[in-house]
């Protein structure tokens, strides 16, 4: 798993601009609602390994709800 995307669910407003920006097309709208009443964006656990860590989603997020981590294996 080269990268991991963390969504701050309490900040997400469900605008889905991240879905539009994701080149791998792995971000989807969840069926769950957050406390604000928005259907949040999420990456299904089984598709997280397709994430390349480009952070385009974080660049387009107007609510600073996305943090992207690169995962490095220790030598």
């Amino acid at each position: 798993m080269p990268a991991r995307v963390q969504f701050r669910e309490d900040r997400c407003k469900g605008c889905l601009l991240c879905v539009q920006a994701c080149p791998s097309g792995i971000i989807l709208q969840s069926s769950r609602f957050n406390q604000l009443g928005y259907k949040i964006a999420e990456i299904p656990h089984e598709r997280m390994q397709e994430c390349k860590g480009c952070a385009f989603c974080a660049l387009m997020c107007p609510d600073y709800a996305i943090t992207v981590f690169k995962i490095e294996e220790d030598a």
């Binding site: 900040r11 469900g14 860590g53 952070a55 974080a58 690169k70 220790d74």
Partner: peptide, 24 residues
């Protein structure tokens, strides 16, 4: 295994939910 953040939000940006509409 360690995680390195790719995204860094500048400190001057206050960590607070915005009042803007979704997608603004």
């Amino acid at each position: 295994m360690q995680e390195i953040p790719v995204t860094r939000y500048p400190e001057v940006l206050i960590d607070r939910p915005t009042h803007y509409c979704p997608g603004c």
